[in-house]
Every structure is written in structure tokens, then in C-alpha cells.
Write a protein that binds this DNA or RNA. Sequence first.
DNA 1: GCTGGTAACGATACCGGTATCGTTACCGGA
DNA 2: TCCGGTAACGATACCGGTATCGTTACCAGC
Lengths: 341, 341
Amino acid sequence: MQHLHGGVTIRDVARQAGVSVSTVSRVLNDKDDVAPETAAIVRRVIEEMGYASSIAARSLRSRTTNVVGLIVPDLWHPFTSLVIRGVNQVTSAHGYDLLAYASARRNPYSMADWEVHLVAQLNGTVTDGIIVVTPNAATYRTALPLVAIDPYQATTEYPAVIATNYQGVLEAMAYLVSLGHRRIGFIAGRPDLESAKRRLEGYHAGLAQAGIAFDPALLVTGDYTRTTGAGCAEQLLALDPPPTAIMASSDETAFGVYDAAARRGMRIPQDLSVIGFDNTLESLSVNPPLTTVDQSIEQMGALAAELVLKLIQGQPCESRQYKVATRLVVRQSCRAIDPGS
Amino acid sequence: MQHLHGGVTIRDVARQAGVSVSTVSRVLNDKDDVAPETAAIVRRVIEEMGYASSIAARSLRSRTTNVVGLIVPDLWHPFTSLVIRGVNQVTSAHGYDLLAYASARRNPYSMADWEVHLVAQLNGTVTDGIIVVTPNAATYRTALPLVAIDPYQATTEYPAVIATNYQGVLEAMAYLVSLGHRRIGFIAGRPDLESAKRRLEGYHAGLAQAGIAFDPALLVTGDYTRTTGAGCAEQLLALDPPPTAIMASSDETAFGVYDAAARRGMRIPQDLSVIGFDNTLESLSVNPPLTTVDQSIEQMGALAAELVLKLIQGQPCESRQYKVATRLVVRQSCRAIDPGS
DNA sequence: GCTGGTAACGATACCGGTATCGTTACCGGA
DNA sequence: TCCGGTAACGATACCGGTATCGTTACCAGC
């Protein structure tokens, strides 16, 4: 309790053990320049005093922390959770600690480049490398190894891990067409998001591939959320005739479609087929289980972690874009229809 | 790029702006001892150079970081996610950043006191306060304000936020009794967990309150997981006569009961009433929706955050234990029966 | 003219560690 | 005896910021 904050410092330990701070530091870092008996004494004193070294101070000088930083827009969204899971698997396997950092901003999406100040915070000396989830900026002022997952920008100065959004929707559309659907509604994501743009392109391509003319009335724009998705679905279902299937840009949006259908007394899949995008945990437990496009979000996190660890070890990245394949997961929210109906 | 790590330091900014580091620091912290024109120049240089100050260095001297640390056993478990959500709401409302720290240990539960080294890491100067989720240790070597959520120990040296596990089960039992149930099975949680012990006590109290004699055969011990829960349920349903209702110590366990009932061709709630504990998201989407005890996990997180912020501001905590009330959420997994049946 | 006060800014110690270099004691060999 | 080498450890600069105090210039008031 000699210092203001009450913590035990390396100097306290040194004094107590009757050695210099240098020696204590050597013991802490398992250097070999210290006699076994001395090391034993120091270790005992450390134990007795409950000393723990501060990463902040250590890293300031030694520039290595064994910690990987993960910057996320929020910490509870299903997408984020899955990313974290994948990242953590890899980092922990390599003995790195994981530190997830979320903004104090109330709504992460309210401001462009919300993440730049977080990168800046971690920039100094807290982490050895950074992974950013859904970043806005195309470049950062940092010398730390940095990898992005699902960036908004199409081209970035840092390596990025992205899903094959285009192919994912394309595959889903082909599936709907194979079931006989011709009037397929699409609820897009926020147009400023790269992933949303790619998914929309997949929709157009899917129509073209099936020889179906694009009907502007069947395209509404949401923002990946459930409530907006419900509103968009209302709009689509009010058409005459309504679409027989709706391709949603995200699972959350698809749940909104469920809500809207329920309000209109429509049954899924009897009266309406629905496909989502993300394969979140919830998509399995809704009723009926949602057919959706799996992004292997967890795998994206794992890949990003491997990349950042490679960069930390000084190895270069061959590519600037790493694509993780999507996969259509067929459950029970779609059914085949007669072309005539 | 003059330094090894390539980052721009406050000295680079000072040199570029033609002022001293002191002045730059003053501008950074909005001190009033600086001329507006000078401040403008400094700010412009900061912008141009993309300078960002390092928390590590700052906090080393100023002992305040505006960051609250959250130490969790994992980052993806639903319980953790909800806690984080509650914590984040409060911290962000007060302008604090949130930093979630997970262990590199593969299985957090494999070692006792997994969290002590994480507390030690954050101890020094990285955060202003710490919240620990489901900690083992009853005390920590840290001078930082520390609050725990759902600790394993019954009594701790730090303030703890806990749910009213006892009352929660008691209320659920009263509900089952009111529906006419007399043979009520109970699947306990891991006996070393404080929360599991309290829930078991609630079961006994519930029986006593209804004047029902305790039957040891109706009590089996699980571990909060789904598969074990299923095994326990098999055991209970093999009894003659089987219980008409099962009180599960967690939602996961309750899902296990669903599984076991399905295997035996029993319908819920027609043939068996089930109550869970946790009110996870999944409990809403299973079929039938699960009647369960809500822990308001999110509210626990929020309360813990408020406490830690109070401590950071130097205000004392009146109590050592803060209880968050549980609440029975009645859905469709229970039905009334004739006492005779 | 001299003093006192204040606005604006600079110089420097310091936070808690680590890296680097220096110092001491002790040993073997010529 | 003297020298060189090495094991063990100490002294100190330094990381990038902030806190504290000192300095300068300028102006009002006597």
C-alpha cells in the first residue's frame, strides 16, 4: 500500500527480496542469468506479496504482449459471438490471450469509422495484433498487424476475410427456382454495406440465370434488422399477386418476414417460402426451422486469427482477400409449388 | 516511422507543430491553459499525422483509463452474452469503454481460479475497474474496484451480484403445486456451484411448503447441460409411477428433458410438465415454449456495472451482496392435472 | 520605474516495467 | 602474480505519455 493505487510494484518485490529490480525482472521472464536460489527467493516473495506485473508498463518497453485485440461494433450480436468463438479457438491454441474491445458509442452504426479510435487506442502497446469486425475505413494509422473480417469497403489496404455473399444468394435463388418459384421477393440490406451490395447482385444474377425478368416492386431495402424486415415483408405481401417466396438478406430479416406472415395469417412454408442468410443459432430454433445461407462465420474468425498470428510472426500475407465459401442449409421454410399457382 | 514500431508519438507531433510535448498533452486533454490558435495548429498536425495516444502510456502516469474490464470464462456462451449486453448498456451510458477479456485456456472450467491471472493482468493500469463473471476465488490481489457476477463462493470479499436462485425455484414449485402436481422430479445442477445448491434448497422448501414428503428417487443430479439432463430425465421417467412434472435447474437441462420425453413418446405438457431456469432465448423457440424462471441476466450485468462505476468514483458499496429478483415466465410446457391421476 | 498578477508555454521528473551495459567476485591457466 | 573469462547481479536509460513546477512576456496599478 505504499503507492497511491495500492498495488505492489516490482520495486517493492525487489526491496523485500533484497535484490535489484533487474533481478526480479529476470526471474519474471525466466532469463537464465540468475542463480537458482535467488530465483527461488524472488518467486517466494512474489507469491507472498501477491505481485502481478502490469501489461501496460511491460509492453511500453518490450513491445510484445501475447495478446490479440478484437475490435467489434458490439459484443452481443450473434454474428459477433460466432466470430469471437472462431478467433478464440485459434488464439488460445497458440497461447495468446484475447481481448475484445467494444466502443462506448451507443449505436455503433451511427457514426462512420466508429472503429478508428478503437484501433488507435489499441495501437500503442496493448496488443500484438488487431482483428477488426465489419470496419468502415479502408486503411488505418497503425503499425500493428491488422486483419479485417467482412469490411464494408470492397478494397482495403489490409488483408480481409470475406464470405462469398454473391454466390451464396445465387445458390439460394437457384434452389427457389428449382422448387418452381418465379415471383421471388428480395429484402436487401443497407445499401452502403459491401456485403449487402454483393447479396443484391446475387439476387439479380439469380433471376437472370433463371430467365426471370426483374420486377422492381419485388425489391425492397431493409437494414438487416428484424423490425425493418417485418415492414419490408408487409410491403411485399401486400402486392397483388404477392411473391411466393422471399429471399431475405439476413436471418434477422427473415425472422421479420415470419412476423409479418404471422400477422397476415400466412403459414410458412405452405403459403410463403423464406430463405435467410447467416445461419445463426436462432435460425434453427424458430418454427419452422429456417432454410438459410451459412456464412461459416466461425471459420471466418478462425481464418482471420491465423492470418494475424502469421503477421505477428513477421510472415507476409500472400493475398489481400480471403474468401470463405457460403453453403446453403436446407431446412423447412421452403416448399415446392406448381408453376401455375 | 522514426520509431521501431512505426507509430507516431506525442513528441513527433510536438516537433511538427513547433511546440512542446506539454502543450500537445494539454490540447489532447482539453486543458484551458492553451491559446486557441496554438490548439488549432496542434489539432491540425494531430489530424495530419494520424496521431493517437496510447492508453498504456497514458494510464501508467495518470491512473485513469475510462475503460471497464470484464473478465469472462468464455465469450460466446448465452449467459456471457447477456451479461455483456447489460454491462455495456451502463458503461457506454457513462462514457466508459468496455474491454472483455477471456482466458487463453482451452477449457475455462478445467482449472480452479482460472480468472486470477486475468485479474492480475488487468490489475496494473489497463482498466479503472473490473467485473468478473462466475469467479472461483473469494478474494483477489488487486487494488482495483472489483465486482463479481454469480460467484461460486457463497461469501466473497468483494461485492457480488447474484440471482435469487432459492426464491426462483420456490415460486416455480408453488406454480406446479397450484396446477395439482404432487410428484415433482428435480434435476439438480453441479453440486459445487453455489447457484445449484440454492436451487436445490428451493426445491426442498417448495415441497415442504406444499406439505409433500421428499422422495429421494425424484431427485437426480445433473450438471446444467442438455445431454446430462436427458439422462437424468430418463432416470426419472423410468420410475413407477413417473413424476407428472419435472423441475430442471437450467433451460439446457429442460431441453434434455424434452429430448428424453420425445424418445419415450411422451408429449409436453399433456403427459409431462416441465419448468426450466434461465429464460434463455432458446426457451422461447422450442416446442412447446418453455415455462422457465427468468434470471434477468442482463439486469445483473447492468447492476454490476453500476456498482463498479460507483466504486471507481470513490463511493463505497453499502452491501456485499446484491440480489436480482427472479421471475417465473409462464409459457406452455405445464398443464393442470387432477390430483387423482 | 517597479511590483504583482496572469496567460501561455516549456523543462523535467515520474509511472512500472524491460534492455543495455557496467560491476563485482571468483576461477583457471600461464 | 597477473590476466582473461564468466556467472550473477546492479545501475541506469528508456518506452510514451501526464503532473508539476518553472519561465517568459505582457499588462495594470501604484
